[in-house]
Amino acid sequence: MNSQTKSQFIAVASITSELSAVMVVAKEISLAAANAKAIAFRAGDKAKGFQPITDFINELAKETIELVTNINVYALLLYRLTVNEYRRTAAYNRFEQVAKLAIGARYADSMQEPISHARTMMQDCQRQFKRDVTQLLGQLEAVMHHARAARVIAANSRIEASQAGEYLQSLQAVAESVDKAAHTIHDNVQRCRIALSIYRNS
């Protein structure tokens, strides 16, 4: 296995790993939203501005979980494509080796068709991989967009929390936890994007 193929396998495997961490964090946001909703309910008028924010946080967490679930399915397809490309490339290289070893053999020319077919299949896989990576990068961008939105919500939450009297600390903790989670999601997804970006369609 050459170093490019190894990097490709690692890049694809790292997506699944990073995204499973994102999924955990998104679920934490969802829990934080439920917690915030309960606090805001108890705070009543003092946290009036906070109540719609909790719904928003929850919605954002749900959408992130849905997006990541879809991306994971896609990442699995990308992994299969990588395996397929590896097999096709290995076959093509072996067939070329056969052609060299078979020089002078009575039926050496008959190897040309399998070589040509293997080359086409290998190139198709490479093109398909680039197309799929480009699409996956788009989906990852959507997750990052959600993470950025969550950070804005966290900032708004802090402002609303400051007017919540004795509930200030609890609601600020919620805002902090959303901000931290959004930060983690952003960083993890960014690492996926960096790992994959060298394979995208130019």
């Binding site: 056969v98 053999a105 068709e113």
Partner: peptide, 16 residues
């Protein structure tokens, strides 16, 4: 052994 084996078979039979 695939490559040397296939190359050897090509002395006796075409791929198809």
């Amino acid at each position: 052994l695939f490559a040397p084996m296939m190359a050897a078979v090509l002395h006796h039979a075409p791929v198809d």
